[in-house]
């Protein structure tokens, strides 16, 4: 075997191990979610069992009621509402502010820029308690508003739109102004249609971001009817450490990771574009 040939075989071998490493945890979760309780306790086989419909039906409709946890159906619904509210809110708010800082000259423009930039330096993790108090003060605990509104401010998305708008030729603006179009018409009829692909890319990234929120819903919700599915899992896993219900926990895990994974798989191109645009 020549050395090139050996190198190719070794490359494929390493890549197969790598992909297996990425897939295995989710595959095992799927396997666990298709067996009944006794099977998942006496040593799980490596292939799926026959209890898929039973288990998923149970978590969706019934959940782990005996632990005071709601069924997963409503939690998934909450996650959808919150993720979509964050996504649409963030896109709308960022388009508007990106438009303001590129297409207008006004005093405090630089100050506005820096205040927006501050969001990048202050992730929720570093200001947990006071943010909680602010939201509580507004009476927004246990509400969809409290779960989504504080997360729609975004420096990265604003800068993304600024960057997109900077590439729009000035001649277009001049032509629009000569034709008598004001800023709102220009934004609605020219800038937004021209940023379609960027909006799609941002949609994918923000949906994943919103869906995968953990600390925020953990702080915001006491009422189980507002739990999102990602944070709900933690309660189930904790309960499972004492009285194992792994087949149900893993069914929930699969249901919870499916929506963002489907979005990434279906919108691969927009996903990669969004990733590079928002981060770099």
């Amino acid at each position: 075997m020549s050395s090139t040939r050996f190198r190719i075989v070794a490359s494929h071998a390493a890549l197969i191990i790598g992909t297996a490493l990425m897939i295995l945890p989710v595959y095992m979760a799927f396997v666990a979610s298709t067996h009944d309780l006794s099977r998942s306790l006496t040593g799980l086989p490596l292939w799926p069992g026959a209890h898929l419909i039973d288990n998923y039906g149970q978590v969706l409709g019934e959940g782990m009621r005996s632990y005071g946890l709601p069924p997963i159906g409503p939690m998934l619904f909450n996650s959808f509402v919150v993720a979509l509210a964050i996504t649409f809110g963030k896109i709308a708010v960022s388009i508007l502010s990106g438009f303001a800082i590129t297409y207008f000259q006004f005093p405090f423009r630089i100050l506005a820029f820096w205040i927006i930039f501050a969001t990048m330096m202050l992730p929720v993790e570093v200001r947990i308690l006071p943010t909680y108090e602010v939201v509580a003060g507004f009476g927004m605990l246990d509400s969809y508003t409290g779960l989504s509104l504080p997360l729609i401010a975004s420096a990265t998305a604003t800068f993304l739109f600024r960057q997109v708008f900077m590439t729009v030729p000035d001649e277009l603006t001049e032509a629009a102004r000569i034709d008598g179009a004001g800023p709102w018409r220009f934004l609605w009829w020219i800038l937004i249609p021209m940023s379609r692909t960027n909006i799609a890319a941002l949609f994918v990234i923000t949906f994943i971001y919103g869906w995968n929120q953990y600390l925020w819903p953990l702080l915001m919700t006491k009422d189980v009817s507002y739990y999102t599915v990602i944070m709900g899992i933690q309660r189930m896993a904790r309960a499972s450490d004492f009285q194992p219900q792994w087949h149900l926990v893993m069914a929930t895990v699969i249901l919870a990771l499916l929506p963002p994974v489907i979005v990434v798989a279906a919108m691969q191109k927009q996903f990669v574009k969004g990733l590079f645009e928002t981060e770099k």
Partner: peptide, 15 residues
């Protein structure tokens, strides 16, 4: 190799 990007950190932990 790219799809696990969509998996939440909390879920990665539980897995």
């Amino acid at each position: 190799l790219t799809w696990p990007y969509a998996v939440a950190p909390a879920i990665a932990g539980v897995l």
